[in-house]
Structure formats: structure tokens, C-alpha cells
Computed example of a mutant assay.
Amino acid sequence: MNWRKSTYSSGGDGDTCVEIAALPARIAIRDSKAPARALLSVPASSFVVFIESIKRHPR
């Protein structure tokens, strides 16, 4: 899998973020501080809705 991390990652080594990887029809998500642990995968369409919601309601 080709994991990507946000350019907004912060912290000493830039490892305080989640990483995502595109799978066929799904998006895999993992903790960048513990990449060998479990990952979460969600339907790509749900992930798009999630990201759009974050963009509409930033903190």
C-alpha cells in the first residue's frame, strides 16, 4: 500500500497524524505513530463525505 500523510502533520518528527492509503473502493487509515498496529478501512464514498464535512466545519 502507498501510505500518505497530511502536509499539516505536526510534532517533533511530523509523526502525530494519521496516514491514508487508497484501496479498490475503500480508504485505509492508520496511526502514523503505530503503523504496524491495526488499520481502519472505510468505503471511499464515506471518506469523501467525511473530508468534505471537515472542510465545511474547520475548527
Score class of each variant (00 low, 15 high):
1 M>Y: 11
2 N>M: 06
3 W>Q: 08
4 R>C: 02
4 R>I: 05
5 K>M: 01
5 K>D: 00
6 S>I: 09
6 S>L: 12
6 S>P: 09
7 T>N: 14
9 S>K: 10
9 S>E: 06
10 S>T: 12
10 S>Q: 13
11 G>N: 00
12 G>Y: 06
12 G>C: 04
13 D>I: 09
13 D>T: 13
14 G>N: 12
14 G>P: 10
15 D>K: 15
15 D>M: 14
16 T>A: 15
16 T>G: 12
17 C>Y: 04
17 C>G: 05
17 C>R: 05
18 V>N: 04
18 V>P: 03
19 E>Q: 15
19 E>H: 09
19 E>V: 08
19 E>D: 13
20 I>C: 07
20 I>F: 05
21 A>C: 13
22 A>Y: 06
23 L>W: 05
24 P>C: 08
24 P>S: 14
25 A>R: 11
25 A>I: 00
25 A>P: 00
25 A>F: 04
26 R>K: 12
26 R>V: 02
27 I>P: 03
29 I>T: 01
29 I>M: 05
30 R>G: 01
31 D>S: 01
31 D>H: 01
32 S>E: 13
33 K>Y: 04
34 A>V: 09
35 P>G: 04
35 P>A: 05
35 P>S: 04
37 R>Q: 09
37 R>I: 02
37 R>T: 08
38 A>E: 09
38 A>G: 08
39 L>W: 07
39 L>C: 09
40 L>A: 07
40 L>E: 03
41 S>E: 07
42 V>H: 02
42 V>E: 02
42 V>Q: 02
43 P>Q: 12
43 P>S: 12
44 A>Q: 13
44 A>K: 12
46 S>H: 14
46 S>Y: 06
46 S>C: 12
46 S>D: 15
47 F>S: 04
47 F>C: 04
48 V>F: 00
48 V>Q: 01
48 V>N: 01
49 V>K: 10
49 V>M: 10
49 V>S: 09
49 V>I: 12
50 F>W: 00
50 F>C: 00
50 F>T: 00
50 F>K: 00
51 I>Q: 11
52 E>I: 02
53 S>M: 01
53 S>K: 00
54 I>S: 07
54 I>M: 14
55 K>V: 04
55 K>E: 04
56 R>N: 06
56 R>Y: 01
57 H>K: 13
57 H>N: 15
57 H>S: 13
57 H>Y: 11
58 P>M: 04
58 P>N: 03
58 P>W: 03
